[in-house]
């Protein structure tokens, strides 16, 4: 414990020295510098970039088209597994991770699934965090009637059965231009964000309620700092911790929710075109794998590892961001 203590002290000392010695740089360039110095965050960023590359060059990495069905090849095991007496189920390097229920290559589906899952993991996270943060900030900062109204509204949204809402949205919008827009991505993002923001908003509000009574906010007010400056320069950066954690947790949730919603016909339309950009997602694979957990375990394991790794990457980036944006931690 003693080391931690001295570390902290020396860190802040060096901050003071740093500020004393060099010309002030902007908050953001400082943050970027600090982020790039965090090895875990850099590794995570590299991993995400790698996934983006995989997503783009998926046709080169995939051995087959992800929609191609190989007759008589259902539930083939991963390449290194041999099943005694059942050559038709034993692994083959033509299908490195085996095949799914109707004989499609798991490896190729995994590679193509990167596309959908990156988009589906990232975009709703941004939407959800944005909505939740704004509402939480406003609610906590203004308090009183604004807070009461927004939070009661949040309670209503949180309580009514979202599934019913999705079913109706699907029935009503499926064949309209909105529903078909971007292969159904728009509806999907809307659905995922609408459900997710309440938790974030309440977290941010809680932070703001506590922060705005702290000395430094009172001091800022006393010296006449404008409201929006207090909101965005003081309250927001200091509420980032919970926001970032929520962000990292929204990613796997959204990837799985996408699959559940897609199966119900909400959001992504199942692809039938061999040239489709988003033919499959990891979430789809997980749900397919659920039925085959004994019959072909890699159908489940492969996407599960992928989702876990992407979650881990976002966690590291989040940790790095939080540290980088914290003006008290400079080194």
């Amino acid at each position: 414990m003693a080391t931690t203590l001295t570390n902290t002290n020396s860190v802040s000392d060096s901050v003071e020295q740093a500020f004393a010695q060099r010309a002030p740089r902007s908050l953001w360039s400082d943050a970027r510098r600090r982020l790039l110095r965090n090895k875990a965050a850099v590794a995570a960023l590299l991993y995400i970039s790698f996934l983006i590359v995989v997503a783009i060059i998926a046709p080169l990495l995939a051995l087959h088209n992800p929609l191609d069905i190989f007759q008589n090849n259902s539930y083939r095991q991963a390449a290194w597994i041999t099943v005694p007496n059942r050559p038709e189920a034993s692994g083959s390097w033509a299908f490195p991770l085996g095949t799914d229920a109707i004989g499609r290559d798991v490896w190729s589906r995994l590679v193509y699934g990167t596309r959908t899952s990156l988009v589906v993991g990232f975009v709703p996270m941004v939407f959800t965090l944005f909505l939740g943060t704004v509402i939480g900030l406003v609610s906590g900062f203004f308090g009183g009637a604004v807070d009461a109204f927004l939070m009661r509204f949040a309670e209503i949204v949180y309580s009514f059965p979202a599934f019913l809402f999705f079913i109706i949205v699907m029935t009503a919008l499926k064949d309209t231009p909105i529903g078909k827009f971007w292969n159904g991505f728009v509806i999907l993002f809307g659905a995922l964000s609408l459900v997710g923001w309440v938790g974030v908003a309440r977290l941010v509000r809680g932070q703001v309620l506590s922060l705005k009574e702290k000395e430094f906010i009172e001091a800022a007010r006393a010296i006449g700092v404008r409201q929006h400056n207090i909101l965005f320069k003081h309250l927001l950066p200091n509420s980032l911790g919970p926001i970032i954690i929520s962000g990292a947790f929204i990613v796997p949730g959204a990837i799985i929710a996408e699959a559940v919603l897609s199966y119900l016909g909400i959001g992504l339309r199942p692809a039938t075109d061999r040239n489709a950009l988003f033919p499959v997602s990891w979430g789809n694979m997980i749900l397919d794998g659920k039925a085959a957990i004994t019959a072909q375990p890699w159908l489940m394991i492969a996407p599960a590892i992928s989702i876990a790794s992407i979650t881990l990457a976002f966690t590291f980036i989040g940790d790095g961001l939080r540290d980088a944006l914290d003006p008290r931690e400079a080194n």
Partner: peptide, 12 residues
Amino acid sequence: FATIGVSVPTFV
């Protein structure tokens, strides 16, 4: 544990 808990589905 956090990563497992959040990314491996409950049914598994």
